[in-house]
Amino acid sequence: MIRTALRVVRPARPEAGADPVPAAARPVLAFEGVGFAYDGRAVMRDVSFRVAPGEIVALLGPSGCGKTTILNMIAGFLAPTEGVALLDGRAIAGPGPDRGVVFQAAALFDWMTVAENIAFSLRCAGRPRRERRRVAEEMAVLVGLAGREDAYPYELSGGMRQRVGLARVLAARPRVMLMDEPFSALDVQTREALQEEVLRIRDRTGCTIVFVTHSIDEAVFLGDRIFLLEDIRAGRFERFAVDLPGPRDAPENRLAPGFLSLRETIYRRMRHHG
């Protein structure tokens, strides 16, 4: 009975994690019947969802479940072979700074200082030097790196490098920030500090975030909604709404009853489908 997987496109009834009805707010991001075939083999079929402005959506699942494929489509690295992926109502065509990606190992440019890394998108857009410096300094403050603008990446710890990765994406003022298992290579303390930082950044910038993770804890702590990808080939995934007391970045939330029960629910669901 637990195996009754819910169809994505037409949920039988509105459930907790259903897309927020776009009454006034148009979705920032929408997938409409998106499918993807590689070498004639369907990797993904009939995926639909909508993401509201300022929302944090976690794509959760084991490796190979297709979560990175969804992220790569939003980023524009992959194009749907079926259906359409929309950003602000327009079909996504190729990568762009309005959808910057934070990668797992930060993927910093080692030959640029922290400030030059952060302002890279502005440099590509041909913005003048003074503006780049000003934005780099603002973003460094936002991610807690003030004073390290002129350091080179090799001088930074893993956590600080990932903060640069965040700032580099945020400096472009993206519509959606995409994160591909951004903290999985960090130690627990650093990872938790950065998760809290991401929630604070969302509160301050109102940035919409879609992130990929295989950690249930991370998905529950960070996400407003969680998409548990069960069988993306059949377009099946289950959505969960996270209901935790604010402020969301409070570390106590990791022990809140709502956190623990949702964690358990998702864990059981994943085990049954594993």
Binding site: P95, A107, A125, L178
Partner: peptide
């Protein structure tokens, strides 16, 4: 991954080569 990063931050072919 670095090339993908640069592309998603708005770098074109020439900028990717140069930067």
């Amino acid at each position: 991954r670095l090339v993908a990063s640069a592309r998603s931050l708005g770098a074109g072919r020439a900028a990717i080569l140069r930067e």
